[in-house]
């Protein structure tokens, strides 16, 4: 399987973001795409929704964020590519680093950060343009103009998201003609095309049928050798199947902000959780 990181090594164009990542990788010991969160809090206006989250997201692994609805999983996820900035009136406190580099300070340009940290949304949101143009959208933003380079990139990323065989003869087709599952895999390819270190997924399969869900999960499993994945999911079985690490978040009342109950290896979290609340949740007693 061709993976985007390999492509960047021999693909010709050197992207600043990737070069920076390689530089920081030397500092952090090789692994690219690891987050470290220290005492992270989020407030919408005066409403504190998350407080005191400290966790490490390992590189080249799948980390699942689980918890009941409204516990701030998606909000925490959006801290990692600063998409909360887009919502306005959101204040994020604490410290978040990507490969040792502070991503919340003024020194980090959110535009550059988002090329390194891609996102796949809950509902497939392909742009109203062709399949090819959808995937080439990010690279074109990065300034890649060469037709052959773009085609290679589009093919590589569509292969990575397991969509290539279905669309290789119809790249000029409008993205809206694809099925929901195909659209979501297109969105994964689109996120991969900027050659990110991390991909954030916010319940990427919740709007899809079981077969499409299966395909997305297979894609995730294949991707983690080349890119870090952080996934928010409501589906316990899904978290157990696909993730290496699991973080359980909880908001016990609307008056108090959500917090991280515990985080650990998925296997241990699902067989021998430390906290009784984790156990109650994963065995389906609430949420």
């Amino acid at each position: 399987m061709v993976i985007p990181m390999q492509l960047s090594a021999d693909g010709g164009a050197v992207i600043t973001a990737v070069r920076d990542a390689e530089y920081t990788a030397e500092v952090t010991g090789g692994a690219i795409g690891s987050f470290s969160l220290t005492d992270v809090s989020v407030a919408y206006g005066r409403d504190r929704v998350i407080e005191g989250v400290t966790m490490d997201v390992p590189a080249h692994a799948v980390t699942a964020l689980i918890g009941p609805s409204g516990c701030g999983k998606s909000t925490l996820l959006r801290c990692l590519n600063r998409m909360n900035d887009e919502l306005g009136n959101v204040h994020v406190g604490g410290r978040i680093t990507l490969d040792g580099q502070d991503i919340m300070g003024k020194a980090m340009d959110p535009v550059e950060l988002r090329m390194r940290v891609g996102q796949v949304f809950q509902r497939p949101n392909p742009f109203p343009m062709s399949i090819f143009d959808n995937v080439a959208y990010g690279p074109r933003t990065q300034g890649i103009r060469s037709r052959t380079e773009l085609s290679d990139l589009v093919e590589a990323t569509l292969r990575s998201s397991a969509l290539w065989d279905e669309v290789k003869n119809s790249l000029k087709k409008h993205a809206f003609e694809l099925s929901g599952g195909q659209q979501q895999r297109l969105c994964i390819a689109r996120a991969l095309a900027t050659r990110p270190e991390v991909i954030l997924m916010d319940e990427p399969a919740s709007a899809l049928d079981p077969i499409s869900t299966q395909q997305i999960e297979d894609t995730i499993a294949a991707l983690k050798s080349s890119v870090t994945i952080v996934i928010v999911t409501h589906n316990m079985q899904q978290a157990a199947r696909i993730s290496d690490k699991t973080a359980f978040m909880l908001r016990e009342s609307l008056e108090a902000p959500a917090f991280l109950v515990e985080m650990g290896d998925t296997k241990r979290m699902f067989t021998n959780p430390e906290d009784t609340r984790t156990e109650s949740y994963i065995t389906g007693r609430f949420g």
Binding site: L113, R114, N125, Y137, R190
Partner: peptide, 15 residues
């Protein structure tokens, strides 16, 4: 135009 499209574009590093 759905807000998801704008977010999708922003998430790809577009101003």
């Amino acid at each position: 135009v759905p807000a998801d499209l704008r977010r999708g574009s922003a998430a790809l590093g577009n101003t």
